[in-house]
Nucleic acid binder design. Structure first.
Ligand SMILES: [Mn+2]
Ligand SMILES: [Mn+2]
Ligand SMILES: [Zn+2]
Ligand SMILES: [Zn+2]
Lengths: 147, 147
DNA sequence: ATGCATTTGCGAATGATTCCCATTAAAGGA
DNA sequence: TCCTTTAATGGGAATCATTCGCAAATGCAT
């Protein structure tokens, strides 16, 4: 039981939610996930620990965690929602279109420009979704980067 | 039958697709749509012209149009796909979280930074998805914009 | 006009997510 | 520890958007 999971559980309790067996396990699985798994994958990992936990409960619990801000739900291309534990520092994602790998990044400038663009349009930016899709550069194509 | 629709039909023909009655009508409806409608809404508009056209055909035809690059499919929040006729100049969207309105914008700088970030990560940017969510500023909050 | 490959309409099938509800089990106090 | 209250669970049905399968209809090149 990682301490990251303990944090999830603690926040959960503070939000007035009951701490149940399934929730402990789901919190643990989510806290350990560093690969943006989809719900079915989380269900698999949870079931490996306690096969009695239902898919319904996984969905419900993730929704509770998301509502409490403990978990983020992404919808990269392809129907199913993907999950990651909420991180203290916001980041966006780049998808390797050849391998499907998810790379995280943070661009201070893009973040700032987004808020600026929104304000120019007469809005206060409340959120955003940015996903880049890219093809890995061959080694020889990378030479110009080193300079 | 707008000329924008004719363009769709013409590209469709060049792509080796047959020009059918349903396709003409769907092309016309899509070409006129300036509000990012979902598929069901397009179906409604199509059915208002020819009630015999099926939802399946609308889905299939939109897929064909999208594959040929005539139509873009967005997946803003909320399950269903939303459609817009492909425009010559790329743009991104800001969603007014209070009204649900979709505002279009284009930021040269953000576009450039995206490519830059991708390259720094070792990728050639092949696409991206950017959606901003914002709350409309009250008039009094806008004063600092005029400067 | 004829023949054939594409399209279409309709209904069934899918896949992800949510809903329903009888049963189980936290939480808090006696 | 033993109740009481009430939220959470499991399992299955229900939803919703989208896709499939296939016989019938229809473009289009000849
Ligand atoms: Mn991430
Ligand atoms: Mn648009
Ligand atoms: Zn961001
Ligand atoms: Zn863009």
């Amino acid at each position: 039981m990682s301490d990251a999971a303990d944090v999830l559980i603690e926040h959960c309790r503070e939000a007035g939610q009951r701490i149940t067996g399934p929730r402990r396990i789901i919190a643990d699985v989510v806290a350990k996930a560093d690969d943006h798994p989809d719900v079915t994958e989380i269900y698999r990992r949870v079931a490996a620990i306690d096969p009695g936990i239902s898919l319904s409960t996984v969905y419900r619990t993730l929704k509770v965690f998301a509502a409490t801000g403990l978990v983020e739900r992404h919808s990269f291309a392809g129907g199913r929602v993907r999950i990651e534990p909420a991180s203290d520092v916001h980041h966006d994602h780049l998808i390797d279109t050849e391998s499907g790998a998810v790379i995280e990044f943070r661009s201070e400038e893009i973040e700032r420009l987004q808020a600026l663009v929104a304000r120019e349009l007469g809005f206060e930016l409340t959120g955003h979704r940015l996903v880049l899709y890219g093809r890995p550069l061959a080694k020889v194509e990378r030479r110009d980067l080193k300079r």
